[in-house]
Design a protein around this nucleic acid. Structure first.
Lengths: 211, 211
DNA sequence: GTCTATAGCCTGATAGAC
DNA sequence: GTCTATCAGGCTATAGAC
């Protein structure tokens, strides 16, 4: 029941989270503090405890929303492309674009830089579905004979994960001010993806080899 | 002139750095503090300032020694292998093995998790030489006709950098307790390297095409 | 929901005795 | 080179008035 009171409250929560991400961006993920968020919001620290019970709770909500949005971005991009390799490539590109545009959240999601913070199981769930989506796209690619049968495997998921993780890692470390598509690393991603058929050569014609 | 006094001093410095790395390993890179190192060393915080002028100076020395050791490890592995692709693969494997065995230092070297810390130019130097070594190995690979001419390029360095960065990133994020060669990601590295000839196909026989 | 006030911790760093 | 003492500040979180 979103009456005026609770809507106002929701807006405050959103603003707190936006400021928190900004602080993480400027001062590093571990540089986030309740005090600094309060300062920027123009209130005193105790007021924030009406919205979040602890600093870790803020981290967890940023993680949860980030994982959710990241998954949605990738899924949408995949659905707009042809099934199989095109969808996989488009999905990972969209993922990379989002991660570079949301670097602080990306670090929180994948680098675990805050030892005292472990994401809750609920917050972690989207990561599991991302793997499933990639696995399904590889299966489609095999069905469409874009790739060989060995590509319908966890191992193949790891290979494409290596491509995107490598590109993102290098871009974040060495090109902190560039977005996806700029610089020396991210433009190489399509090239890397184009290597997949060489790694998993599609079988020719024979649809039912080896019974 | 290493008399007894300065040798003892050097041992203390080494011990401080070893403890500091241990703290970073347990509490995260940003969890390092002068107070905690002093506690574990069994002295009071002010005593450490006789050895390092500031907390940042400790970070910088860990960075400097780490970069140096990392470079030496890679160079040694390359020199023990056949020039070209084998040396490149062996060097990057040795690099990966060292990074996974020295995760906290690896994070300091490549992730810049401490916003207030920027490595000094001197401390950064080994990174430049690592790129040069990889570039030279690619040139050897071209000369030995293991790869095509396009592999003698910065772009090819970025590609192999992507392979190793991707593998290391995934291993560090998802398999915090496994070393190189274990788990799902690092064993895929040789497979990735074996894709290079497909990406940069060696020219056959014709050594002087297109004068 | 906001505030003041405060408890109770932590930190980096310095001065100066020994 | 070690210490005590201390400065000056940061932080999370809570109690309780308004």
């Amino acid at each position: 029941m979103p009456d005026r009171r609770s809507r106002r409250r929701q807006e405050t929560i959103d603003e707190i989270l936006a400021i928190a991400v900004q602080v993480m961006t400027e001062d590093g993920v571990t540089g986030l503090s309740v005090a600094e968020v309060a300062r920027r919001l123009g209130v005193r620290p105790p007021s924030l405890y009406k919205y979040f019970p602890s600093l870790v709770a803020i981290y967890d909500e940023i993680y949860r929303r980030g994982a959710q949005e990241h998954l949605a971005i990738m899924r949408d991009a995949m659905e707009l492309s042809q099934p199989g390799l095109p969808a996989l490539t488009a999905g990972l590109e969209a993922s990379g674009r989002w991660l570079l545009a949301n670097r602080a959240v990306a670090q929180l999601l994948f680098w675990r830089p805050v030892p005292s913070f472990e994401p809750s199981a609920e917050a972690f769930a989207p990561s599991v579905e991302m793997v499933a989506l990639q696995r399904a796209a590889l299966r489609d690619a095999v069905d469409a004979k874009q790739l060989g049968r060995e590509a319908d495997s966890d191992q193949a998921v790891f290979v494409v994960a290596t491509f995107i993780a490598g590109v993102i890692t290098l871009a974040m470390a060495n090109e902190p001010d560039l977005e996806w598509g700029e610089g020396r690393f991210t433009p190489a991603f399509p090239t890397l993806m184009s290597m997949l058929p060489a790694l998993y050569p599609p079988t020719r014609a024979k649809s039912r080899a080896r019974g």
